[in-house]
Amino acid sequence: MPKNVTVEELKAKAKELRVNIVKTTNYAKSGHVGGSLSCADMLTALYFKFLNVDPADPKKMDRDRFILSKGHAALGYVPTLAMAGFVPMDSLKSFNHYESCYGIHPDSRKISGCDASTGSLGHGLPMGVGMALGLRYQGYKDSKVVVLMGDGEQNEGSVWEGAMAAAHYKLDNIITIVDRNKLMIDGPTEQVMGIDPIDKKYEAFGFKVISCNGNDMADVDRALTEAWENKGQPICIISNTEKGFGVKRFQGKVAWHYGAIDSDMLKEAIADIEAL
């Protein structure tokens, strides 16, 4: 059951998350800041309203599961887990450092609340299908599995193998989200390897597709509410976003897939985010 949290409260949290993302990028020396900022609103809504997870009991069986299939967005994910109380805020300072629990991609053996180690693209949905099947079989009717993927990630065949299975098994406890920020490493998705019409593809695979503006909290809230109420088939949310959203210098820039933030740039980034 989603919690009673207003869109205004979520917006404030998303701002806080974006600030933590740029700060952590600075601690980490460098990282995937673009794709972390693009999905920050989605992560916020999931962890502060929708997901049934508990930092005091991170492994309770009847929880919802979340898989960051675009694992390189750990810079967005780990600060979210910190804000949600799963890991200490202060520990973010060690990000990427020798022997840290947090590297460029998340390690489920080392991070409380992290359900799957990811980083190699195209692994999240198959693992999510397995979790959804396992939960259904064991009678955890109310537990959902949410899988957040990149749009470039849609190129991987394993995504579609997972999608075929999700529909075949009528997994209405699975919610996939495509962070449609329109960029990958070598350029815009539609230039490198086009994925459109991505909504029609998921529909043809048997999903119910919901599109939203993934950088508008009210619209994110609407999409997730609809997804949570759904019955009978798997869901795919196409979350239309902008890579680097919130920091002008990064927004829509392919070069900011990965980058380093020094202290001056950090000040500038925080000022941009606060003005949102």
């Binding site: 020396k29 460098s30 070069a255 990965y258 980058g259 380093a260 020094d262 740039m265």
Partner: peptide
């Protein structure tokens, strides 16, 4: 690595 550049780790 120079700070402040949009440096690409994959280079």
């Amino acid at each position: 690595m120079a700070e402040g550049t949009a440096w690409n780790v994959y280079d």
